[in-house]
Every structure is written in structure tokens, then in C-alpha cells.
């Protein structure tokens, strides 16, 4: 076994299957290799019995359909304590899109029949102090944020397909992942995007985020390696194409904002 092995758990790839988010795993693998690490990814399906979070250095949850929430929640509940310990230990967990809501306190489904639109309440995993409300209509847009991760500040651009609005207040140990430059973020009102707790991040950003913003991918990998005690000697890779791509998207967003102002 390589002494530079980074173990990655790809959670429920065929259930949390939306928005091409498998690309994030591809990015982790690619940049791990560029940093001289040896990535090893395991697919974890619903009902996998021998899943022990502490065996991994990065655990990734993509977004899935709201109808699958209960099945996913029930499965995660089977290892809720170990996953909480994993996050507490400073290891890296990433949850993107709607799946971020699962880690909050509760999710209130939208009900067209209820006067206030609030229907069934699903208990969350209570790992982040956040509450989610299913939206009546989907919100889709670009998302441009100034993110903070493990002491680094960086600009990230991706997409947001928002099925739930998330309300989260920063408290000790629980910070925003980013401040919204453009887009909706958690709920469109407080300028907050996502949540960071220790080195785990919960975000609405899709794209896939780690493909579009490899500077974050590298930072995550360096963090995972550091936690594991692996020394990474390689310099950060060049991101020429991705930087140009980000520039074009930024320009598009600016034009969109200018048109809105007119």
C-alpha cells in the first residue's frame, strides 16, 4: 500500500446521481495524482454493511432527488455516530446540492395543499445547525462566491439548482463556506453560501464544483493529506484552461447583471 494513499468514499453514486456530480470524484482523482498522492476511491451503495467512515480521508455526497431522501437518511442513520466523529476529527466530508440539507436539523417539504406551503417534516442528521424548506419552484442560476476553506480565500464559480432554501446562522465552529457575489446561496437573503464545520463543507455549488474550481480541489486534497500526516511536496498545478473558463463565466455574469440593471 502506498504511503501516499488518499482514500475517497463516493457515497451512493447511483442514488445521489444528479447534475453530473460524479465529475467531482474525477477531479479529486486527477489532482490527487498531480500532487503525487495515490487516490483510491470506493463506491458505497445503500446498504453497504462494512462502511467505516474513519477508513477514509475524503467522503463525498452528491445531490439526489428529494424522493430518495428518506432512503438515504435511513442508510446514513446506520452510521451517524461514526460520521459525526469523522467530521469532528477534522477529516474532509463534502456534501453538494440538496444533500446539504440532510445534514441539517430538519427538512420541511413543500405542500401545495397547506396554507403556508409547509408539509411533511423530515428529521435531519443534526450535524450542522441548519434548517431547510423545500421550494415551490426550482431556482437555477450561476453561483459566484468568495469562499474560505482551511485558511485560504478563493473565488469559486459554479451553478446552483436549488430545490430547498437553507437557513443557517454562523456559530462557533460553524462558518459560512462562502459569501455570495452573485446568485442565491443558501436562501437568497443573507448572502451566505454553504457551511463549513472543521474541514467538512456543505454547499449548494454544482458545476461540478471541483472540476470548475480546481484550486479548491487541490486545497481539499492538501487538507486531507495533512490530516493523514502525508507530506505533499508537489507545487500546485497550473489551471490555465479552468482560469480562462472562470473568466468567461465571470464576464457572462457581469453582462447579466448589467442587463438586469438596465
Amino acid at each position: 500500500m502506498s504511503d501516499k494513499m488518499i482514500n475517497i468514499a463516493w457515497m451512493y453514486p447511483d442514488t445521489l446521481f444528479l447534475h453530473g456530480e460524479r465529475g467531482n470524484i474525477m477531479a479529486l482523482v486527477r489532482y490527487a495524482m498531480e500532487l503525487g498522492l495515490t487516490p483510491h476511491v470506493r463506491r458505497i451503495d445503500l446498504g453497504t454493511e462494512d462502511f467505516d467512515p474513519m477508513e477514509y480521508d475524503i467522503i463525498f455526497y452528491g445531490p439526489g432527488e428529494i424522493s430518495s431522501f428518506r432512503a438515504v437518511m435511513e442508510d446514513i442513520a446506520g452510521y451517524a455516530r461514526p460520521i459525526a466523529e469523522y467530521i469532528a476529527s477534522g477529516k474532509v466530508l463534502i456534501a453538494t446540492g440538496t444533500t446539504m440539507s440532510l445534514f441539517g436539523e430538519k427538512i420541511t417539504r413543500f405542500s401545495p395543499d397547506a396554507e403556508d406551503g409547509r408539509g411533511e417534516v423530515i428529521d435531519g442528521l443534526c450535524m450542522i445547525p441548519a434548517e431547510s424548506f423545500e421550494r415551490e419552484y426550482v431556482y437555477g442560476n450561476d453561483l459566484d462566491i468568495r469562499a474560505e476553506y482551511n485558511g485560504y480565500s478563493m473565488e469559486l464559480i459554479g451553478n446552483q439548482i436549488q430545490m430547498t432554501d437553507i437557513h443557517f446562522s454562523e456559530s462557533e465552529g460553524y462558518q459560512r463556506f462562502g459569501s455570495v457575489i452573485y446568485g442565491r446561496g443558501n436562501n437568497g437573503t443573507d448572502g451566505i453560501e454553504g457551511v463549513v464545520h472543521n474541514n467538512s463543507l456543505f454547499t449548494n455549488m454544482l458545476g461540478p464544483m471541483l472540476i470548475c474550481n480546481p484550486w479548491l480541489t487541490v486545497r481539499i486534497l492538501r487538507t486531507a493529506a495533512e490530516i493523514k500526516g502525508i507530506e505533499v511536496e508537489a507545487q500546485d498545478p497550473e489551471y490555465k484552461l479552468e482560469i480562462k473558463s472562470l473568466g468567461l463565466k465571470k464576464k457572462f455574469i457581469e453582462e447579466k447583471q448589467n442587463n438586469q440593471e438596465k
Binding site: H19, R22, N141, P208, I211
Partner: peptide
């Protein structure tokens, strides 16, 4: 194309990784 069907338009490449 940028996704222009609905407002607001956005730079959507999500399906490419599917």
C-alpha cells in the same frame, strides 16, 4: 449555448459530466 430557456440565463454544463 448558455441556458437561455428560462430566467435568468446561466452557464450550465452540468449534463456534460453525465
Amino acid at each position: 449555448d448558455e441556458t437561455l430557456d428560462y430566467y435568468p440565463p446561466f452557464t450550465n454544463t452540468l449534463a456534460l459530466f453525465d
